[in-house]
Design a protein around this nucleic acid. Structure first.
Length: 202
DNA sequence: TAGGCCATCTGGTCCT
DNA sequence: AGGACCAGATGGCCTA
């Protein structure tokens, strides 16, 4: 494993602390030079040990970060279940997933308050819940609903970001496409994050 | 073999 | 001063 290998290497790679040179001789000037050499050696070992500590902390920090990322993976539905999303996929998918969940809540809330339900044929339209353009947080769903007809279900590829925008704060990629009602979205939509089912297109 | 993903190291910067 | 955070560099592993 890379991790173990690197761990070992970081431990073994530590250079032996430079001791006093063998050709040291007694004498005043020599002694001063020896002091300097010792100071430098001490400084060197000090720096070295600080670096090693810093490396250790950094490694630990990244492990914590990865653990958090794993937890996030754990709550994201994928298909097959043991699919491991990459880091970037996990983050972008989580973004979309949260958006989809809140959109579902909003729709449910609308219905609860007797708002006219969206036409069923619209709900059943392929890609209804797969915003190709932006589920930007707080945005109105209407904007992307209008583009729904141009979407194809489960065709996006999250692992190949197309533009530099993908890494910025621009609209997220459509990591999944959903076919059907919001409930179905929650159950099966995001499974398309990585392996779009071939029969997903309705 | 090229490209993607990842872990680690490292030096710089900011904060406490 | 020391720790946290960050971004660039490097090298290994895996897959198409």
């Amino acid at each position: 494993m890379t991790k173990k290998r690197a761990l070992v290497s970081s431990q073994t790679r530590a250079e032996p602390s430079p001791g006093p040179s063998p050709e040291e001789e007694p004498g005043r000037k020599r002694r001063r030079g020896r002091c300097r050499a010792r100071n430098e050696a001490a400084l060197h070992t000090l720096r070295k040990s600080r670096r090693v500590k810093a490396n250790d902390r950094e490694r630990n920090r990244m492990h914590n970060l990865n653990a958090a990322l794993d937890e996030l993976r754990g709550v994201l539905p994928t298909f097959p279940e043991d699919t491991k999303l990459t880091k970037i996929e996990t983050l972008r998918f989580a973004y979309n997933y949260i958006w989809a969940l809140s959109e579902t809540l909003r729709l449910a809330d609308q219905r609860l308050h007797k708002a006219p339900p969206p036409p069923r044929d619209l709900l059943l339209r392929p890609g209804y819940l797969s915003p190709a353009a932006p589920p930007s947080p707080g945005s109105d769903a209407g904007s992307w609903l209008s583009t729904a007809s141009s979407l194809s279900a489960c065709t996006s590829n999250p692992s190949s970001p197309a533009t530099s925008e993908d890494y910025g704060y621009g609209p997220p990629e459509p990591l999944f496409a959903c076919h059907g009602l919001p409930g179905e979205l929650l159950r099966s939509g995001p499974c398309c994050a990585r392996y779009p089912p071939a029969d997903a297109a309705v």
